[in-house]
Amino acid sequence: MASTTSSWIKPSTRTDLIENLVSGVDRYNPSNVGILEDYLYHQIRSQEYDCLANLAILKLYQFNPELYNPDVVVNILIKALTASPFPDFNLCISLLDERTPSTNLDEPDPLPSLLPVLTSLHALLQQCKFPMFWSTYHSDDLETLRDNYTVECVGFEDAIREVAVRAVKAAFTKIGSERLGSYLDLQGSELEAYVSRLGWSLGSSKNVISIPSNPDNQIESTVVQESIKLPQLVKVISHAAQA
């Protein structure tokens, strides 16, 4: 888990041009939507992620329904999935106003059929049901999503693995390799390679993986005592001094 939100508020990969759009009033200018959409596709290709810039696209779609491009929306949602457990996915959905069905698109709008799929994938991630996520994701029903969208999104599966890694890292000190494999959708040598990349150590029997300690997987019983700070007592003391 990131210990701070600053890279979420402003990723280091964000250019000045995008920063101006995200933070200024130019974000409302519909003619800038192309710049932001290009930036999204740049994120898709180069494993970057900029939630606030993507929300700015959805904001423009919200105010200017004629700009709506379902492919862009799906890509934004796919990107947001990988941010779980942070609320990015829901923040994006919040901006998708109800649409009237009769929009003039050349092709049928893929979003109405994909939205429930993406939402259920998101729910599985939120509930840490990673094995079910993978089986759903690889199922025949989701062929459209895989072939038309996630295949284009470089590193999508690894980004989902990152979600699982974040959850495992916080909850485990040691985990069975079979279990971890089912969370990461990796087996055998692939799993070993992935684990060693993480810097986690595989036990001698190769059945158990040790996870280095981090703030979330160290537990300690503590007794928190109230500590009283001077400013709380300022009124009382200053009154006593006056008296």
Partner: peptide
Amino acid sequence: QQMMAMKV
């Protein structure tokens, strides 16, 4: 899995 969700 529930335990991991609880941790989150």
